[in-house]
């Protein structure tokens, strides 16, 4: 009976595994973007001050200074964080959907070969995927524990188990797929991709 269930579940791994990994990365990206959002607000304030100084120099453009108030700046900062998160999702989470599972030993061998190629911007995606997956695993565990906060022992056990399972079973595959995807691309993600993923990867660590 148990075997039959396992066999049936195995047959649909090709769909739930990529979806789960994609979701793991998306959760990690959001955790990181939430941290970035606070910093973006300060950056938006600086940019607004810069433009206010320019626009206020002429009477024609002076009304533009009053156009953007604190509310607009806060809205804009959150919108930037959202755009940042969705861009990172496009670079990290969506490619994970193309995961095609192989034997663990084969995956490890391929990963070693791909990682040994000359150091380039191609490594940015897998490196970011690693940090974001860790942040995602921690966020999922935190959510579980928070949901079971009235049952601290059960919550702690479930969260620790989920964290361990995600680190062991999903995060490495997400990184492998990211490495595979980055290597298969004709061009590296470029400086724009680095600008999107670099700060987000650091924020992912800060979100832990």
């Amino acid at each position: 009976m148990e075997l039959r269930v396992t066999e049936r579940v195995s047959k649909i791994r090709w769909i739930f595994l990529p979806l789960g990994m994609c979701a793991l990365v998306a959760v990690g990206t959001h955790a990181a973007a939430d941290v970035v959002g606070d910093k973006v607000l300060f950056a938006v304030d600086r940019v607004d001050a810069f433009f206010d100084a320019i626009f206020s120099s002429w009477s024609v453009t002076a009304p533009l200074v009053d156009l953007v108030g604190l509310g607009e700046r806060t809205f804009f900062a959150r919108a930037v964080a959202l755009a940042w998160e969705l861009s990172a999702d496009a670079l990290l989470a969506i490619p994970v959907l193309g995961y095609d599972e192989r034997a663990a030993a084969d995956e490890l061998t391929i990963a070693r070969v791909l990682a040994k190629r000359r150091l380039s911007l191609r490594l940015v995606q897998p490196a970011a995927a690693l940090l974001v997956s860790i942040a995602g695993a921690a966020a999922v565990a935190r959510l579980l524990q928070g949901t079971l906060l009235h049952y601290p022992l059960i919550g702690g056990f479930v969260a620790a188990t989920a964290l361990f399972g995600l680190f062991l079973l999903l995060a490495p595959r997400a990184v492998f797929r990211s490495l595979e995807h980055a290597s298969a691309q004709k061009t590296a993600i470029g400086l724009l991709g680095l600008a999107i993923l670099g700060p987000l990867a650091i924020a992912a660590v800060a979100s832990l």
Binding site: V5, T6, V9, S10, R13, F16, L17, L19, G20, M21, C22, A23, L24, A26, V27, T29, H30, L82, E85, L86, D89, A93, G136, A139, V140, L143, L144, A162, G165, L166, L169, L170
Partner: peptide, 21 residues
């Protein structure tokens, strides 16, 4: 496979209800 299914379901739940994506 069963453990993976549960873990994937948890990730999907978290992403589905708790992210803008």
């Amino acid at each position: 496979p069963l453990v993976e299914l549960v873990l994937c379901a948890l990730c999907l739940w978290a992403a589905w209800y708790h992210t803008p994506a």
